[in-house]
Amino acid sequence: MEKNRTIRAVEAHPAISMLKKNRPEGAWNRDDSTMREMAEPFGGRYFHCSYKIEKSRQWVSFEVESRKDAVSNYQYRAPGEWFAELYAHYYMGTLDDHPLKGWFEQEIDQNFNPGAVLGAPNYP
């Protein structure tokens, strides 16, 4: 009797609901209103499995409201994708009004020059 009540309590927890809903699709395939609803019990944080690595899963989270500054939906798959998408958009020149454009100009362009690190291509 106690075991069944514990199982029902665990199954009713919002984290279990989020886990089940995230199986078929991740954050990059959801609209913001659905994510807001799913994240409400967690103070606005949305949790999902970004990658399955061998037998374990890499769980990540983000504040749903941060998506207002998204450059793509895929950016929210994993932390590395978040940065990679911003980096690509910065160098494509599409971050004009983005709040992190200044950081890229100050930190990345000043301290890391991809051309200097990788060297210019040497074509025959």
Rank of each mutant, 00 (worst) to 15 (best):
M1K: 02
E2A: 04
N4S: 07
N4C: 02
N4K: 12
R5Y: 00
T6R: 01
I7H: 01
I7A: 03
R8G: 04
R8I: 05
A9T: 10
V10T: 13
V10H: 02
A12W: 10
A12Q: 08
H13D: 09
I16R: 08
K20C: 11
K20H: 09
K21F: 08
N22S: 14
R23W: 11
E25W: 07
E25P: 06
G26C: 12
W28L: 08
N29V: 12
R30A: 08
D31L: 08
S33V: 14
T34P: 01
M35G: 04
M35Q: 02
R36F: 06
M38Q: 02
A39G: 05
A39H: 04
E40Y: 00
P41N: 00
P41V: 00
F42W: 03
G43D: 01
G44T: 02
Y46V: 02
Y46D: 00
F47M: 13
H48L: 09
H48V: 03
Y51I: 02
K52T: 07
K52W: 08
E54T: 02
E54I: 01
K55T: 05
S56W: 04
Q58D: 11
W59V: 15
V60H: 11
V60Q: 08
S61N: 11
S61C: 14
E63T: 13
E63Y: 14
E65L: 13
E65C: 12
D69A: 12
D69W: 15
D69H: 14
A70Q: 14
V71A: 03
S72F: 10
S72H: 08
N73K: 08
N73V: 10
Y74R: 03
Q75Y: 01
Y76T: 10
Y76Q: 05
E81D: 07
E81N: 04
W82K: 04
W82I: 07
F83A: 00
F83S: 00
E85G: 06
L86R: 00
L86S: 04
L86A: 06
Y87Q: 03
A88P: 00
A88W: 09
H89K: 12
Y90K: 01
Y90W: 13
Y91V: 14
M92Y: 10
L95I: 07
H98S: 07
H98L: 14
H98A: 10
H98I: 15
P99Q: 07
L100C: 12
K101Q: 11
K101S: 07
K101P: 11
K101W: 10
W103V: 10
W103C: 02
W103T: 06
W103L: 05
E105D: 15
E105H: 06
Q106N: 08
E107W: 05
E107G: 01
I108L: 03
I108H: 03
D109K: 12
Q110N: 07
Q110H: 09
Q110Y: 07
N111M: 07
N111C: 13
F112A: 12
N113K: 14
G115Y: 15
A116I: 15
A116Y: 14
A120M: 13
P121Y: 10
N122G: 09
N122W: 11
P124R: 01
